[in-house]
Simulated assay, not measured.
Amino acid sequence: MKRTSNQPFRKIAALTFAFSLAVPFAASDNALLSNEAHAAGTTSSIAAASSASATSSVRPATQSFALMVKGEYVNRTAYLKQGNGYSLYVANGYTFSKAKNKIHLTQYPSYNAQIEKLPANFNLQKVSKQGRAELKKYGQVRSYKGDQLFESPMSSARLLLQASDTKGNLHNYVIWTSKKGDSYLFRINAPTSEFAGTFIEIISNSLTSILADK
């Protein structure tokens, strides 16, 4: 999913920031480990590529995603990680914990996403009410869906709630259903910073690549 350089990426408050190329990624994958905190202008094709393999019993070990570096898109690699009954693709610079069902920015763990598999017969209204109760402590809870999410990987989410605390830190509560029909709850935390929007973009692509093992 390509976008023109510096095209504004957010339509909703603080979901993602406008593209910034001030501190681009280094050229090699390994360099990402020391530069992910200053990631800029990021987009990805992880979810699209993984959905193509949804009907396959074996998913590819890697998938590529694109980063905008100085106005050009450069392919990078995301690696298939095995969770508890599911798998998903995780980009360089991010750590996945199977034991905790959690992804975090390797050098900055406060940027993280918690994964919870939902039962097949979960009640969306009940889970939505639970989410609002959880987020209320941070501030006003807002709900977004469809075109309000613009080109976000989460645009097909069944539910996306968001609250921002007094420091501007973002807390997202997302219900996602994969191509296979399995549903998950994602709790995404992004402390306020110039790269919070980029973190949300990358982590959203990882989360939306999730598929149940069976």
Results as ranks from 00 to 15, higher is better:
residue 2 K to F: 15
residue 5 S to L: 15
residue 6 N to A: 10
residue 7 Q to T: 09
residue 11 K to G: 05
residue 12 I to M: 08
residue 15 L to Y: 10
residue 22 A to T: 14
residue 23 V to L: 13
residue 24 P to W: 00
residue 25 F to G: 08
residue 27 A to F: 07
residue 32 L to C: 07
residue 36 E to R: 13
residue 43 T to D: 05
residue 43 T to I: 10
residue 49 A to E: 10
residue 49 A to F: 03
residue 50 S to V: 14
residue 51 S to D: 15
residue 52 A to F: 12
residue 54 A to L: 10
residue 61 A to F: 00
residue 65 F to M: 08
residue 67 L to N: 13
residue 68 M to H: 07
residue 76 R to T: 07
residue 76 R to F: 01
residue 78 A to S: 13
residue 79 Y to G: 02
residue 82 Q to Y: 08
residue 82 Q to V: 13
residue 85 G to T: 01
residue 86 Y to V: 06
residue 89 Y to H: 01
residue 91 A to W: 01
residue 99 A to F: 01
residue 100 K to W: 05
residue 112 N to E: 09
residue 114 Q to H: 01
residue 119 P to E: 02
residue 119 P to K: 02
residue 120 A to H: 02
residue 122 F to E: 01
residue 132 R to H: 15
residue 139 G to D: 11
residue 139 G to A: 11
residue 143 S to R: 11
residue 147 D to R: 12
residue 153 P to Y: 02
residue 153 P to R: 07
residue 155 S to R: 15
residue 157 A to M: 04
residue 158 R to V: 02
residue 160 L to W: 09
residue 162 Q to R: 12
residue 165 D to C: 14
residue 168 G to I: 05
residue 169 N to K: 04
residue 169 N to H: 11
residue 171 H to D: 06
residue 171 H to A: 09
residue 174 V to M: 01
residue 175 I to N: 05
residue 181 G to D: 00
residue 182 D to N: 02
residue 183 S to G: 04
residue 183 S to V: 04
residue 187 R to C: 00
residue 189 N to K: 15
residue 191 P to N: 01
residue 199 F to Q: 05
residue 201 E to L: 12
residue 202 I to W: 04
residue 203 I to R: 03
residue 203 I to V: 15
residue 208 T to P: 02
residue 211 L to I: 04
